[in-house]
Write a protein that binds this DNA or RNA. Sequence first.
RNA 1: GGAGAGAUGGCCGAGAGGCUGAAGGCGGCGGUUUGCUAAACCGUUAUACGAUUGUAAAGUCGUAUCGGGGGUUCGAAUCCCCCUCUCUCCGCCA
Length: 425
Amino acid sequence: MIDVSFVRANPEILDVALKNRNKPPLEKELLALEESYRSLQTKLQKIQEERNANSAEFGKAKSKGLETSGLQKIMEALKIEMSEVSNALNEAKDRFFNLLHTIPNIPSNECPIGPNETANLEIRKFGEPRKFNFKPLEHYEISENLEMMNFDKAARIAGSRFVFLFGDLARLERSLAQFMLDIHTIENGYQEVYVPLILEKQAMFGVGQFPKFEEDLFKTTIGSYLIPTAEASLTNIHNGEILSEKILPLRYTAYTPCFRSEAGAAGRDTKGMLRQHQFGKVELVSITTPGQAIQEHERMTECAEGILKKLKLPFRTVVLSTGDMGFSSEKTYDLEVWLPGQNAYREISSCSRCNSFQARRMNTRFKNEKTKKNEFVHTLNGSGIAVGRCLIAVLENYQQNDGSVEIPTALIPYFGKEKISPTKP
RNA sequence: GGAGAGAUGGCCGAGAGGCUGAAGGCGGCGGUUUGCUAAACCGUUAUACGAUUGUAAAGUCGUAUCGGGGGUUCGAAUCCCCCUCUCUCCGCCA
């Protein structure tokens, strides 16, 4: 969540930020709610102070065997007043925090301002889209010809937006994940983590999934939620902790399935496995000091880009505009991979800098060595990268005229052979 | 799932209605002694929020916090209820 004292000290900034995110202004309302809850809090504290003083008095009088009925009357009156004020305070607090918790992060001024993805800014491009001497197919056409990807069978038993991968395609998914994890752990210094896939409400709140985006999550019968990304599990590793500055930055990576209800996506990307309720993703998370965050963001983005480069998949990197950014982010780079079958660049990784927005929600701090004060850490997350979409990209970019698919050179040691061919000719 | 025992500061651990934000120890920080290190000794050492002083650094006062929530009481770390988690034993199980 945002820092309210910052909002108070810097008028206008919040409303401008909200406008850039296509949201109505809230600053006035937020500050008024805060004011009303603060004044009630002060009032309650004064009553408590009086109560404590009288109570000490009462104890002394009692031990001396003095008359206490007068004091007792005062205390009883105080008690009633206290419970009234405290009820009012709780209501005011709820109103204030309910609003605060739904306010998105304030975009950095490095971000292009614009209403949606059309305002995103391309900052670099890698690779040239391959020239085909035949009409490139979409990934599901290639896969169905190979008879290794099946949506009908999945729909029959799991519903829409699920998929079966068979044989070499299942192996491709697995080898891509292993390839990515090896690079991030061995070359990029991330620690591999095996994580819970079901998290409690509190943890989802910490990373900003809750309460505003609850409908995007799958809820279990015990009231917990399936993770929509390993970011949720990894970022929460240090939930509630005070870290030593010396150990920062911390870098974590995990390969997990991700579960998304895709509540608002009805009708979008319904063909193929571009948008599924369940997909594999290798995630990168860094926890840093405020001073390290900007450089770490660049580094993390380069780590994600490195995967696409090694696989020789053409892509471009864009800075998301204010209107296209996620709730918790102050700046986001998207990597968009070239899909010849679609003749378009499509998102395959998203690297976000969240400053203290998540840390404040999780209450994750570090002790500043110089000032000896506890400060909120900064958190960053990025896909390193989405495995399901990467599989699509490999299929479409490496498809051959005869229906087979070549395996990128860097992946051959993981995949075990150089080509995927139809099982039955 | 059943039975029992627990949860106290950075860590260990006392406290069993008021004098307890909390003994003692460890660790950390500052200092004295010292050729250096070590040791010894002395001092200091929670967080959040509010009010207030100050240009600021910071100070002063107050409130809350002993796993979480509720209750009893003039007053709760301490008594009662509910929940969560940990440990031990039993059952079940990849």
